[in-house]
């Protein structure tokens, strides 16, 4: 269970360009469900996702993960929670050029110091389950858009996170690839993972897989 209470996020505080992205958001997100955050550009979807995923801290308010307050933890502990609990899928694949697909997938696990053979086996398994094991040794520059996104999904799963966070995952995919992406999400649900997606793509938020839809506008939850 993820619980946010009266969360505010202000950028460039005390500067002329101060901007409040979230204005007192309180929400509970249940486990093993697919939750979609939707709303227009600038409504605060990405900011809310980054706070839920321990990528940034709220200016005010609290975030609880399974009952534990995590919003005030030092960066080191936050990073530890982030890499063990969350898997991130970005709008852009954000793969590191010059490295192979396999190396990119293994990258989040490097600081954990797992044995190489075990890590490699996990990465190959992840790529195989997404149907791109044959691209393991290819440089990421050579991948198509869909392959690159699946590589980034495999990377998000390498540390076996219980919560998957995806920010506008279908923004750069055609309809066919977007359906393929939703199939992958369905598999996550089947495996019992919690999935939180921000999207303004109807193909995503109108999907029958969605358990809960949260609408955001001007940094607040609508309705």
């Amino acid at each position: 269970m993820i619980e946010l209470s009266k969360v505010r996020k202000v950028f460039n505080a005390d500067n002329p360009n101060e901007f409040s992205a979230l204005n007192g958001v309180s929400v509970k997100i249940s486990q093993h469900q697919l939750t979609v955050l939707t709303g227009p550009s600038g409504s605060g979807k990405t900011t809310l996702l980054s706070i839920i995923g321990c990528m940034s801290r709220p200016t005010a308010g609290r975030v609880r993960l399974d009952g534990r307050v995590i919003s005030s933890l030092p960066e080191r502990f936050l990073t530890d929670i982030r890499r063990k609990t969350f898997g991130f899928i970005f709008q852009q694949p954000n793969l590191i050029k010059g490295l192979t697909v396999l190396e990119n997938v293994m990258l989040p696990a490097y600081p954990l110091g797992e044995s190489y053979s075990l890590l490699k086996a996990k990465a190959i398994f992840g790529l195989d389950s997404l149907g791109i094991a044959n691209k393991a040794n290819a440089k990421v520059e050579w991948l198509s858009g869909g392959e690159a996104q699946r590589a980034s999904i495999a990377r998000a799963l390498i540390n076996n996170p219980s919560i998957i966070i995806a920010d506008e995952p279908t923004a750069h995919l055609d309809t066919n690839l977007s359906f393929r992406f939703m199939e992958i999400i369905e598999n996550f649900k089947t495996e019992g993972k919690t999935v939180i997606i921000s999207s303004h793509d109807p193909l995503v938020y109108n999907s029958s897989l969605v358990d809960r839809l949260i609408k955001l506008r001007d940094g607040q939850i609508e309705g």
Binding site: S41, G42, K45, T46, T47, L49, S50, M55, S56, R82, F88, F90, Q91, Q92, N94, D167, E168
Partner: peptide, 12 residues
């Protein structure tokens, strides 16, 4: 810097 810059880089 906050790691969400990677998300910002590509986000809305």
């Amino acid at each position: 810097i906050d790691p969400d810059s990677a998300m910002r880089h590509s986000g809305d």
